[in-house]
């Protein structure tokens, strides 16, 4: 365990290992998303109440899942960075924040588009849309705070603290907003519990969720590699790498 953590301290080691890992995640993301999209859009049966408009959940639900998972990962990497001073963790957190904000925005936008045929309006102050909106503000806060500091080390530590404070607050916000108002349908997708939709609709959704997660991991690996090169550009191994490429 400690040997592994010590290895993680070395950006060079991470750069090498991620080079081997990232093609697998990109391939998995591509296959799963293409399969899930075609299956979900063309072959899954239409909903008997909502017709074809329900198909937007194949984007909406995976994006909403990722939006929440990314914030938690950001807090975990923030904690790892604060406790063990592992620079890789902070680099990963840096590249995760915009991705998480983008996923939150996609979830909000697809929810709004779905709202037009279903509710007859673009926006409804319902519990889940509202807590998604608040999550978007939390993401924007973390990004803005990181950008506001002149020194990178302070920016990293401040963003880590804010991500940890945010992650403690997310469940509180979620439940207080739910208590405040519930108009949405109950959750449509659970991995354990009872499945609320037939298998032919649920399987492509599962594939899409897995595809989105693979995409997230692949993108974080790739972008963290660029971040390593950017931050370590004065190290010898990076210079040697650049000379080899030329």
């Amino acid at each position: 365990m400690w040997a592994f953590i010590n290895k993680l301290r070395s950006p060079k080691w991470f750069y090498a290992i991620s080079a081997k890992l990232q093609p697998w995640f990109w391939a998995a993301a591509l296959i799963l998303i293409v399969t899930g999209t075609i299956w979900g859009l063309a072959f899954a049966p239409a909903d008997y109440q909502q017709g074809n408009s329900f198909r937007i959940i194949y984007v909406h639900v995976p994006a909403a899942f990722l939006a929440q998972s990314i914030f938690v990962s950001m807090a975990v990497t923030g904690l790892v960075f604060m406790v063990w001073k592992i620079k890789i963790a902070d680099m990963a957190a840096t590249v995760m924040a915009p991705l998480g904000a983008a996923m939150t925005f996609i979830a909000l936008f697809s929810g709004a588009v779905w709202g037009v045929p279903t509710w007859g309006t673009w926006w409804m102050w319902d519990a889940r849309l509202t807590s998604m909106l608040i999550l978007l503000f939390l993401y924007l806060g973390v990004i803005a705070l990181r950008g506001a500091f002149a020194s990178r080390d302070s920016a990293s530590r401040a963003a880590s603290v804010l991500a940890m404070v945010g992650v403690i607050n997310i469940p509180i916000i979620k439940y207080s907003v739910e208590w405040w108002y519930t108009l949405h349908q109950p959750a449509t997708f659970t991995v354990t519990g009872r499945v609320g939709m037939p298998m032919e609709m649920w399987l492509p959704l599962l594939i899409m969720v897995l595809g989105f997660y693979s995409f997230f991991i692949a993108l974080v690996l790739t972008r963290t590699r660029s971040e390593i090169l950017r931050r370590e550009s004065n190290k010898r191994w990076v210079r040697e790498l650049a000379e080899e490429a030329n």
Partner: peptide, 18 residues
Amino acid sequence: GGVLLSLLVLPLYIPVLI
């Protein structure tokens, strides 16, 4: 830091407001 402060803090105020 003034505007940034509100941006960071307001989302966390929502449960108390509710």
